[in-house]
Simulated assay, not measured.
Amino acid sequence: MTIPLSVIWKDEQLTILDQRLLPQAVQYETLETLEQVHDAIFQLKVRGAPAIGIAAAYGLALAARRHKTVDIESFRKDVKKDADYLIASRPTAVNLAWAVARLINRIEQAGTVAQAKTQLIEEAQLIRDEDEAACRNIGEHALELLADKERVLTICNAGSIATAKYGTALAPFHLGKERGQEFQVYACETRPLFQGGRLTVWELQQAGVDVTLITDSMAAHTIAAKGIEAIIVGADRITANGDTANKIGTLNLALLAQAYGIPFYVAAPVSTFDLSLETGSSIPIEERAAEEVATIGTQQIAPAGTKVFNPAFDVTPAKYITAIITERGIIRPNDEQTIEAQLYAVPSKGETV
């Protein structure tokens, strides 16, 4: 069994796993233009906050290679325009804007266009490598919290195919499998696009992890009937006070964890924190097309013309989160002081942030 990957840069080419087609087909697609990268992110061919950031970084570097201008200032303006275009593809996941901003900052001091193009590729690769290291560290810290637990519930897909490797919320399951620590994972299907059923179940099966699928509405009963001992989820944006945006349905699980007295963990790299926003009420929540709710695949399941409310994310208040797990350690309690202390702490030797 192997851990699958979703964003691959090899021989100066960007290839992604089209996650819309899983599990029926495992199909990789080579992206050659900025527009293709934008559409791949918007259409959810590539998804998961870290993977989106990695794909966008490579996409920006890829597009920059095609610019013909030899004037460095004009080149920077062209790259900034490309960056704004990519950021518009998915507004909620902060990793996207964070990643392209890193590339923009990297070329601020470049003396030539050729130097800038090289630096963009180097920075994109650095972001990818840092994310893999961060995910491994998140998994290590999560295993500390789950050391005496076996039955764990999750939602959406915060796994290897949502990151560079290992994932965030799924990292302890992948690492645990490598070390002989077995978990019984229960995955919510994650309506309306079924990222839990299509992606998390498929990914964990590829790695040989014991996983059981439930519908989102079965969560409360499953916690009681199966003795769920913890819930762990990923994040798309975490504000200064610890409020967390994640896939729609996450808040439901946090409230259930509170009611049943079990821990509710959020696993995310430090790049997912947005300290410019004080609370979750300021997070922009993406609303998607009605068809995602009114249909399953090509099959209409609601009457034509039905009004639909389709937010892609919800916000879990910090008070419902037992701990936030980052590559730097465990934030508990998660509030302005503890978050700021960890994010601005000097990394220990060998730590990649």
Rank of each mutant, 00 (worst) to 15 (best):
T244K: 09
F183M: 04
N95F: 10
G242M: 09
E123V: 14
E287A: 05
L86S: 09
A220K: 15
L343Q: 08
A83L: 08
R47Q: 08
I248Y: 07
A25L: 06
A158D: 06
A245S: 13
T212Y: 09
E203L: 06
H174L: 14
P50L: 12
A164T: 02
S271W: 07
Q43N: 13
V70L: 13
Q299T: 15
D335F: 07
T244G: 05
E144L: 13
N137L: 10
K177S: 07
R47P: 01
I301D: 05
A93L: 02
L153I: 06
A235H: 01
V37A: 11
A245E: 11
V79W: 01
D18I: 03
T30Y: 04
R191G: 04
T163A: 14
A224Q: 13
K149M: 11
H67F: 15
K226P: 00
I324S: 04
V26G: 00
L17D: 02
W202F: 10
T250I: 07
I41W: 03
K165F: 04
A99S: 15
N157F: 00
E140T: 14
I41T: 01
T316V: 02
I283S: 05
T279W: 02
R47H: 12
M218K: 06
I161Q: 08
T2S: 12
A133H: 09
I325V: 10
I138N: 06
Q205P: 00
I161N: 06
D314Q: 10
I161T: 12
I121C: 03
L277D: 04
L86G: 07
Q43T: 14
I72H: 04
T215Q: 04
T306K: 05
S271R: 15
K307S: 15
D84E: 15
A294T: 05
V7N: 08
A133R: 12
G280K: 06
R90K: 15
K349C: 03
D78K: 11
A134D: 04
V346K: 15
D148R: 05
N241S: 10
Y320K: 05
A304Q: 15
L21T: 07
T15W: 13
D129H: 13
T168V: 04
C156P: 07
A345F: 01
D78Y: 09
K80S: 12
H141A: 02
L193H: 05
A124L: 06
T33W: 10
K177M: 10
I127W: 01
T118P: 00
Y186I: 11
I41D: 07
E123R: 12
G48P: 02
L120S: 08
G227F: 05
Q125L: 12
A162G: 08
E291Y: 07
N157C: 10
R136C: 02
E12T: 08
L22T: 08
E35D: 15
G197R: 04
T69G: 00
Q119A: 14
A259T: 06
F273D: 07
Q184P: 00
A345G: 02
P91N: 06
P23M: 05
R328P: 02
D84N: 14
Q24W: 11
I331E: 08
